[in-house]
């Protein structure tokens, strides 16, 4: 039972990170039909920006700022202008495959130009643990969960309350009508790319202290984000949150109670089951299909 509490807490923490990554993923899909197969590498990369800044001799907080800015510029603006914009008119598949190539490019660039070894990464949440119901809960899990939830709440409020947020929603739901109403759709799409970059950078800062910085660490994360997005509902921010948390819990509990060997298989079964029986996701709306 005590063990279970520990598992649930760490499951919630990883789940919250999955949710951050999955939200960015669904935002890109909604506003610009981009299926970003490099999303996992987008999470892996900001940690390396921070490490590079630390190597130059900057203090940790400055390195985090540099990493954040680099993520916004490279993974937000450059990604949109250089890769997505020229390819968007060709349809969904060529762009999806280009992002697969991008993921190889990013992974091997880090391996070649930084290091193939796993790197330690300083935690932005204090170390130590909290005694609760007679078991030790690591502060890191709690801090990660709180920060991720805070980020999601802020984002939700921004999208629902602010004028820009509403314009972004309108641009995502119906670009043509949004344009007629005078909403600068192009700029709104750029904002979603920036938000995605900020979310993956935050996820990177939160998860890298736990799993170390390595060029391959995006592979599992990217897959987890896809699964979270689909399980929750591909066309809803809400869905990505539910999907992320469900996946984090299932992943952690399955590793202990089912089998470590087939730990990776449980989320996949969940994915296939959801796609077959509830393709709109657990909390998603049914998407109108165009033929």
């Amino acid at each position: 039972m005590l063990n279970l509490l520990n598992l649930v807490v760490s499951g919630l923490a990883t789940g919250a990170i999955y949710a951050l990554v999955a939200i960015g993923f669904t935002l890109l899909w909604q506003t610009s039909q981009t299926i970003n197969f490099a999303q996992g590498e987008f999470v892996m990369l900001p940690a390396f920006f921070v490490l590079a800044a630390l190597n130059v001799g900057l203090p940790f907080w400055a390195a985090v700022v540099v990493g954040m800015i680099a993520a916004l510029v490279l993974l937000g603006v450059t990604f949109k202008l250089v890769l997505v914009d020229p390819m968007l008119r060709h349809g969904v598949l060529p762009l999806a495959i280009a992002t697969m190539a991008l993921s190889i490019f990013l992974k091997d660039s880090v391996k070649e130009f930084y290091s193939a070894e796993a790197q330690a990464f300083p935690s932005i949440v204090p170390e130590g643990s909290l005694a609760l119901f007679g078991t030790q809960i690591p502060l890191q899990s709690i801090g990660v969960f709180v920060l991720a939830v805070a980020a999601v709440v802020v984002l939700q409020q921004f999208l629902a309350r602010s004028s820009t947020g509403r314009q972004m929603q309108a641009a995502a739901q119906n670009p043509t009508v949004a344009r007629i109403l005078g909403i600068p759709v192009e700029r709104m799409i750029l904002y979603t790319f920036l938000i995605n970059a900020a979310l993956v950078a935050l996820a990177s800062l939160l998860i890298t202290p736990i799993y170390l910085a390595k060029f391959t660490s995006g592979e599992t994360l990217g897959l987890a984000a896809f699964i979270a997005a689909i399980v929750g509902g591909f066309n809803q921010v809400r869905g990505a949150i539910v999907g992320g948390v469900v996946l984090g819990l299932v992943d952690n509990l399955a590793a202990t109670y089912v089998s470590t060997q087939y730990r990776g298989a449980i989320p996949l079964f969940l994915l296939i089951a959801v796609i077959l029986w509830r393709p709109q996701g657990l909390v998603g709306r049914a998407e109108e299909r165009t033929v």
């Binding site: 890769l83 020229p86 390819m87 060709h90 349809g91 598949l93 060529p94 762009l95 495959i97 280009a98 190539a101 991008l102 190889i104 490019f105 091997d108 660039s109 391996k111 070649e112």
Partner: peptide, 20 residues
């Protein structure tokens, strides 16, 4: 050496942008 995957990935992206 290890650069070929980077070159291949770049090639694929440029090719697809030019001719999907």
């Amino acid at each position: 050496e290890g650069l070929y995957l980077i070159v291949y990935a770049l090639f694929v992206m440029i090719l697809l942008a030019w001719s999907p």
